[in-house]
């Protein structure tokens, strides 16, 4: 496989990235354009089932995920941004790999083939394949020592059913430190954000989120960077602490470093205004070339 071919992906946005967190979708698109990654959105994708389908009817969740897999071309990896969607799609695919009867039943149901060899990867994997050195060369600005907490939440944990799959712990640090950021890791950066309980039991999630943000403040961080749109939302709307920190989606910070032009537009949509921080660090305004390490 030549290197260019290996950077072709089909892309599953998932509901929160496509709507509630549109800014992470835009920034992801910018990143891919700037890096020359070829992303093809899955034609007519549907919800992966979200926590709710798996909570009340796992079979429905399985069918919903299987439909998405039946839409994915077998000749290129499927790239997923949301860690929860990634988990559901992988789990469904693994079950069909282990039991070809389940796969054939789904192929019959949708009238489309499902490749047993389909590779399902997180966005971080695309960057790893692209290469840290090339990424550094392509950067338009240095992150100027921006102190960030790489917040993984729970979803990049290994659920026992997927313990043999590839995970991306520490990749957020690797990438953003290479671009000039400073990682602050001694925090509650793997504590769950509260997931759907944010809608049903806000008080509970508020105390959890305040603990997480409080630990980041105590460790001297400027901001938190997450790979999950749901985490980003919960950390933003449920925090009641006096000192709050801006929460970025990983792709926003990456797009900023790569010199995307429309960052301002996304930052307006944040509930905790990140612009004073970015201005302070000299990260707003047009990038000055040649300041990359």
């Amino acid at each position: 496989m030549n290197p260019e071919e290996s950077l072709k992906f089909s892309y599953y946005p998932g509901c929160s990235v496509a709507t509630t967190a549109a800014e992470s979708n835009h920034s992801l698109m910018q990143v891919c354009r700037l890096l020359g990654l070829d992303l093809q959105e899955l034609e007519d994708w549907n919800c992966c089932g979200s926590s709710s389908a798996y909570s009340v009817d796992p079979e429905l969740g399985f069918n919903l995920s299987a439909r998405n897999l039946s839409l994915a071309p077998g000749d290129r990896p499927l790239l997923v941004m949301c860690p929860r969607c990634l988990h559901h799609l992988r789990h469904t695919h693994l079950e069909m790999q282990q039991d070809p009867r389940k796969r054939r039943a789904q192929e019959r149901r949708w009238g489309r083939p499902i490749s047993p060899d389909l590779e399902i990867v997180h966005f971080l994997e695309a960057l790893i394949r692209f290469g840290l050195d090339r990424l550094k060369k392509g950067a338009a600005r240095n992150l100027n020592g921006l102190k960030f907490v790489p917040y993984y939440g729970c979803t990049l944990f290994r659920p026992p059913a997927l313990r043999r799959q590839k995970y991306y712990q520490a990749e957020v640090e690797n990438i953003l430190t290479a671009l000039g950021g400073v990682a602050v890791t001694r925090t509650y950066n793997q504590r769950c954000c509260g997931s759907f309980l944010s809608a049903v039991k806000p008080e509970l999630v508020t105390s959890l989120v305040n603990d997480i943000i409080g630990s980041a403040v105590a460790a001297g961080a400027d901001c938190l960077v997450t790979t999950c749109a749901m985490c980003q939302l919960n950390l933003e709307v449920r925090c009641t602490a006096a000192k709050r920190l801006p929460i970025f989606h990983f792709s926003e910070i990456l797009a900023l470093a790569l010199g995307a032009k429309d960052c301002q537009g996304w930052f307006i949509r944040h509930l905790v205004n990140p612009r004073p921080l970015l201005k302070d660090r000299g990260l707003l305004g047009p990038p000055r070339l040649g300041q990359v390490p």
Binding site: C15, V56, V200
Partner: peptide, 22 residues
């Protein structure tokens, strides 16, 4: 019951749109 009600709301959205409508 409240948590179940929330899940059923999400399923309702998937049933109508194929996606969740926040």
């Amino acid at each position: 019951k409240e948590i179940l009600a929330f899940h059923l709301e999400v399923l309702h959205s998937i049933e109508r749109y194929g996606r969740t409508h926040k």
